[in-house]
Amino acid sequence: MQGTDQQAYDRGTTIFSPDGRLYQVEYAREAVGQGAPVVGVRGADSVVLAAHAPDRSPLSADGDTEKVSSVDDHVAVAGAGHAADTRQLVDLARRRAQQERVRYGERVPVAELGTAVADHLQEYTQTGGARPYGTALLVAGHDGDPALVEIDPSGATRSWRADAVGSGAGDAIETFEDGYGPALGDRDAIALALDGLDAAVEDLNVADVDATLVTDEGTERVGEDRLRSAHGSAS
């Protein structure tokens, strides 16, 4: 009987277990933990997102492994977990940003955009016949001040100075705790983000990093030469 009860809680996306757990949400977090790591670092005037995006094959086309996506000219998003789930949430964020511009002629506030995406994620923890999204997002933006928000598969959000999701996230966060300072310039923020990825990934190759810098002037993809310069002699 105990095994049967366990399976019931296991399969029901909307059923709490007796100890108050939603197993499908926990499984979604496990999927996030299996994904390639993504890190974010908030500097004094900018935010950098960096993701490990190695080519699966030498036959893959250039640009096929892009993991950091621009949502608007002041917001970028990256996710760890199921790539298709991340893509759907990026599209949702882009639509929300476009609606703000069409209705009000203004850029959507970063916190408001994060809440809109988080609300959508939360709906899938209490909707029958659907599963939670198997991805966690880092949202980096600048709307007067730099902002970095994590969105969990449960729909929970939290703002961070530096954060990581995906495999090796704990090691990256330890690196950030040791090296973070509130007055980081752009180059130092990029360097710290790469240090975090280096801690999360064995034998990190800068050529396998997809990074975007978000400032008040917009989003800018960080080229490989700039990454190598910030990361020193590491490759």
Rank of each mutant, 00 (worst) to 15 (best):
M1C: 01
Q2E: 14
G3A: 15
G3V: 14
G3T: 12
T4W: 10
D5V: 06
Q7G: 02
Q7K: 05
Y9T: 01
D10R: 06
F16W: 15
S17L: 02
G20D: 10
L22W: 14
L22I: 08
E26K: 03
Y27T: 05
A28T: 05
V32D: 10
Q34L: 06
Q34W: 10
Q34T: 11
P37N: 00
R42W: 11
R42P: 15
G43W: 07
D45L: 03
S46Y: 03
V47H: 08
V47A: 07
V47W: 08
A53M: 00
P54C: 01
R56C: 02
R56H: 10
P58I: 05
S60T: 03
A61M: 08
D64I: 07
K67T: 02
V68L: 08
S69I: 11
S69F: 13
S70R: 15
D72I: 00
D73S: 12
H74Y: 11
V75Y: 11
G79A: 08
G81F: 13
H82N: 15
A83W: 05
A84V: 14
A84I: 08
D85F: 06
V90R: 09
L92K: 14
A97M: 12
A97G: 14
Q99W: 01
Q99I: 02
R101G: 00
V102W: 04
V102Y: 07
Y104Q: 04
R107F: 11
L113E: 11
L113K: 13
V117Q: 09
L121C: 08
Y124M: 07
G129C: 03
G129Q: 02
G134Q: 10
V139H: 07
D143W: 09
A147Q: 14
A147H: 12
E150S: 11
S154G: 11
A156F: 09
S159L: 01
A162T: 10
D163P: 01
A164V: 04
V165T: 14
A169E: 11
A172R: 03
E174F: 07
T175I: 03
F176V: 06
F176I: 07
G179W: 03
Y180V: 01
P182C: 00
L184K: 09
L184Q: 12
G185D: 15
D186V: 07
D188H: 05
D188Q: 13
A193L: 00
D198E: 13
D198T: 15
A200N: 09
A200Y: 09
E202I: 04
D203Q: 13
N205S: 08
V206H: 08
D208R: 01
D210L: 00
E217I: 00
G218V: 00
R221I: 00
A230I: 03
H231R: 05
H231E: 04
H231I: 02
G232H: 09
G232F: 12
G232A: 03
S233N: 12
